[in-house]
Amino acid sequence: MQTYNNITSALFDFLLAPFGHEIALFDLIVWPVIMGVGALQVYKYTSNQKAIARVKRQISMHLLEIRLFRDDIAQVLTSTFKIIAKNTVYIGHNLTPMAVMLIPMVTLMVQLVAHYAYEPAQPGSVELLHLKLDPNASISPRDVSLEVPDGVSLDAPVVRTADGQVFWRVRADQPGDHVFRIRVGDETYEKGWAVGGDVRKIPIKRLRSWEALLYPGEAAIPRDAPVLSLELDMHTRPLRFIPDGELGILIWAMVLSMLAGFALKDFFGVTL
């Protein structure tokens, strides 16, 4: 999991933001379009194009039957069932390309989110740092302590809950890429906090589960650690001309790549 994140992050840190993170629109338009074109190529070479064309023709034929013989209820029902059956076949033909495209597309969208979904905290802002312990681990919240970096101060006493959560309210005094050091028993975990400065790729959250694949901005928490998650409340970066936030970027990238695919399918000679 961590190796995959390291490789893909290294690649996309190199590829994304050629003109700096300020101009988010460039990456958020170019890469979904590239993704759409790439998906077309994958579709072309991993699907049975002839079979797809045939099943689409058959569906059209059955639709025509319904239109021509609409007074014949038996014929309409038969054609409808055939359309459903052919649609199932059509979806079956799509499974292979979808399986091939899934990982690269998710990887790209995850990287776009990592780079553009959030903005650094403002100096002076106050946020909650939240640690969640594994309930199966034999560590008590009382065994957790925080080392606050320079430029950050603790704004209130710590709160430790009975269900194994620990909360700190921290204040960003100075801009910088700060790193908290959190001692859990004998282990120490780090958590980054981007404060002030230019918009940039910033750490979002650290997770122990498979979901760490979705947050490549920071290292995943080791599988044998007693900590399930480490996160700071983040501020969504307003993108103004496209939907912002994690979901906004995901929907935008998906829709734009599909539009690009449909627009260019004839150019690349692909039957969808």
């Binding site: 006493p157 710590v158 709160v159 430790r160 809950t161 009975a162 269900d163 959560q165």
Partner: peptide, 11 residues
Amino acid sequence: VHIDADSDTAV
């Protein structure tokens, strides 16, 4: 409401 055992603080 989670009240901390040691301080007058809660989440």
